[in-house]
Design a protein around this nucleic acid. Structure first.
Lengths: 153, 153
DNA sequence: GTTTTAGCCTATCGATTTAGTAGTTTTTTA
DNA sequence: TAAAAAACTACTAAATCGATAGGCTAAAAC
């Protein structure tokens, strides 16, 4: 399960994607609209900024905005920033490989063999799902729902 | 990342699969062979027993053994026992669905749409990887390694 | 039938992570 | 220089992780 922190981050980024090219958005507005504790959101946005996903402006007219267009930011990237590597075990991580202490023969470790498949499948999905993709999918779902509602009436 | 507890559980089950139909195995032997803290392993095996994956026998000649053949126990099952649902968010879990508190419109939640794909991909892999499969894959890897070694000499 | 064997059960513990909160400082702009 | 707004530092309560300790219970052997 992903943490609340990561969910908040994704919600905030989806919101900022929708408002992309409308200038900086206030933390306070984001917090209110997405119902995220303001001070907590501050820490999250800061982490995303330090990781190069967001940029910010201080003082009046300031706020946060995406460092790149929504098409160029993936869910995989965001999740790695907040949660660490996608891989279920460190020995199959592409972005942060580490040996499993308890494993002496890595190349014939059964857990590793299966978890490699899992990590590849997850990366395939999450690294290809950009914020722009997510916005599109949300729109499609809303249309589907409206369509169903139309026929229901 | 999966916990040490889950890794220990999988290691123990792979060991018990290899010794399947050789009668009950002592916790102490398992702990020594797989280098798992004995008392900790006790709790893990007990959890697996309560979940129906293992059976046990007390007293002399006792120990633990698989409740079903290795072909009928999947990694997905084991991971769910020790870690809870595979799903990254509760609202896409097939085995333990729950609403996300922070989500008002579940059907057009972008996070949910992507995480559904992730959970399906994980379940596809982990529910189809049985302990017997894992043993086979380990053997294949070992043969590959031996083959490479042969040509290297 | 009591002794040994081996799993069962409950409690506790220190370290780390999670989900925040509070208060102050720095930067920008009007 | 006053305001707005992000940045930084520190703290906390609760939960989870990775164990350890010690006694209890059931089964088998003698």
């Amino acid at each position: 399960m992903i943490s609340k922190k990561t969910k908040y981050a994704l919600k905030a980024l989806i919101y900022l994607s929708r408002e992309y090219d409308k200038g900086p958005i206030l933390i306070a507005d984001l917090a209110r609209e997405e119902r995220i504790p303001k001070k907590f959101l501050e820490l999250i946005l800061l982490a995303l900024k330090n990781a190069g996903v967001l940029q910010s402006k201080k003082g009046k007219g300031g706020g946060y905005y995406l460092a790149r267009p929504p098409r160029e930011i993936s869910m995989g990237k965001v999740i790695r920033i907040l949660e660490g590597p996608l891989a279920p075990v460190p020995c199959v991580s592409e972005t942060a490989y580490a040996r499993c202490e308890e494993c002496d023969d890595e190349w014939s470790c059964g857990i590793r063999l299966v978890m490699k498949d899992v990590r590849d499948a997850m990366a395939q999905i999450l690294d290809n799902a950009t914020l722009a993709d997510v916005l599109e999918r949300i729109e499609k779902e809303k249309q589907k729902k409206d369509g169903a509602l139309f026929y229901a009436i």
